[in-house]
Structures are given as structure tokens and as C-alpha cells.
């Protein structure tokens, strides 16, 4: 059970197997909680969001489609939405992210072995101009719309959209080079 693939664990959840759920939680809890903490900036709220993430994974496991991406991406996408919901409920969502955006992303040495192919993506994030990286992190991690960023940071809306488009395009080019 401890060595089965991520996809097999999700199939286990879909079949209602609690042991599979335990393994999945142990395997991903640091990643899920870390993302939730990055978004909510509050340990209690992050734990609630992380718990909610695994409950949703349990409930919707049957809808996971391996062709659309790895389990980790599916789970973290749920975690992001759960954390944004929790933060929104506590009136924190529209806060400007407090930490420097670069702190939200692991360095190349912090990437786990199953995701070594993401190292070039992490490097590309760090090479982005600071203003593009800030907008990218606000949008992808903190769920802020371009208009919200524009209003919070007193920037023209067009400037925010351009920065976000440029940042995503650069990262796509870096990612495509290693994962065609």
C-alpha cells in the first residue's frame, strides 16, 4: 500500500478505502498544508483548508482524470480553491500578499524527486522580472483578478494584464522545452 502509485491511491479513495486515504494524506499533507499556508498566512485557517482539501478529494476521487495531469496537480488545485474559500470567508482574500512573492516558490533544491522536471519551471519563475513575478503569484496563488490587483497595487489594468500574460508565456516556453 505504501508504495502504490498516486493514481492507484485515488482509485482507492473512489472505492471508499480509508487506508488508501491515510497513505494519500501522509504523502501530500506537507505540500497541501504548505500551499494553504502560503495563501491564507494563518496556521489555523491553513489547517482547515488542508483538511477540506482531503475531504473533497475523498468525495470527488471518481472524477479524477489521469490524462489531465498528475494527482499532485489535481490535489493542489483543490487546495488552492479551498484555501481561497477559507481566506475569503475570513475577509483576507483582498489583502495584498504580505511576503515577497519569490518566497512562495520552492528553489530547485526544494523540489521533490517525482517533480524534478519542474526545476526549469522554478528557475524560470525566479528569472522573471520582479513586477511580472508579483502579478503572477497574486493571480495564481492568491486568486486575485487583474482588476483586484490593479486596484490594490494602484496599477493600470492593462499593465497588470500585460505582466500576467508575459509571465505565463515565458513560463510556458520554459516548461514546453522540458515537457513537450
Amino acid at each position: 500500500m505504501w508504495n502504490v502509485s498516486d493514481e492507484a491511491l485515488v482509485a482507492g479513495l473512489a472505492a471508499g478505502d480509508r487506508e488508501a486515504a491515510l497513505v494519500l494524506v501522509r504523502r501530500f499533507q506537507a505540500r497541501v498544508y504548505g500551499l494553504a499556508l502560503t495563501i491564507t498566512r494563518d496556521r489555523g485557517t491553513a489547517e482547515e483548508a488542508a483538511q477540506d482539501t482531503f475531504l473533497k478529494a475523498w468525495r470527488y476521487a471518481a472524477s479524477y482524470d489521469a490524462r489531465r495531469g498528475p494527482v499532485a496537480a489535481w490535489l493542489l488545485s483543490i487546495a488552492r480553491n479551498a484555501a481561497l474559500d477559507q481566506a475569503r470567508g475570513r475577509g483576507r482574500r483582498r489583502d495584498r500578499p504580505e511576503a515577497e512573492p519569490a518566497d512562495d516558490v520552492a528553489g530547485a533544491d526544494g523540489i521533490d524527486s517525482p517533480y524534478e522536471e519542474l526545476a526549469p519551471l522554478a528557475a524560470a519563475v525566479r528569472e522573471l522580472p520582479a513586477e511580472q513575478r508579483a502579478v503572477l503569484m497574486a493571480a495564481v496563488y492568491h486568486g486575485l483578478t487583474a482588476r483586484e490587483i490593479s486596484e490594490a497595487w494602484h496599477l493600470p489594468l492593462g499593465t497588470v494584464k500585460t505582466r500576467l500574460r508575459l509571465a505565463l508565456s515565458k513560463l510556458r516556453d520554459a516548461f514546453v522545452e522540458v515537457a513537450p
Binding site: 494524506v25 506537507a30 498544508y33 504548505g34 500551499l35 483538511q51 475531504l55 488545485s77 518566497d103 495564481v140
Partner: peptide
């Protein structure tokens, strides 16, 4: 795909002790 993969780059932080038991109890 790029935006989804960006989430995989987030920091890992161990949750408070007893987290997994609380999750299982809530299932």
C-alpha cells in the same frame, strides 16, 4: 497547465501534529 504546475512549486510545510488523524476522523 503552467498555472497548475506552478502550484507544485509551493513550499512544503508539515501540518500540526495529529493532522492525519483529524482528517481520517472527518471522512
Amino acid at each position: 497547465t503552467v498555472a497548475d504546475r506552478l502550484l507544485l512549486l509551493s513550499r512544503r510545510v508539515e501540518p500540526p501534529a495529529g493532522f492525519e488523524q483529524r482528517v481520517l476522523a472527518a471522512l
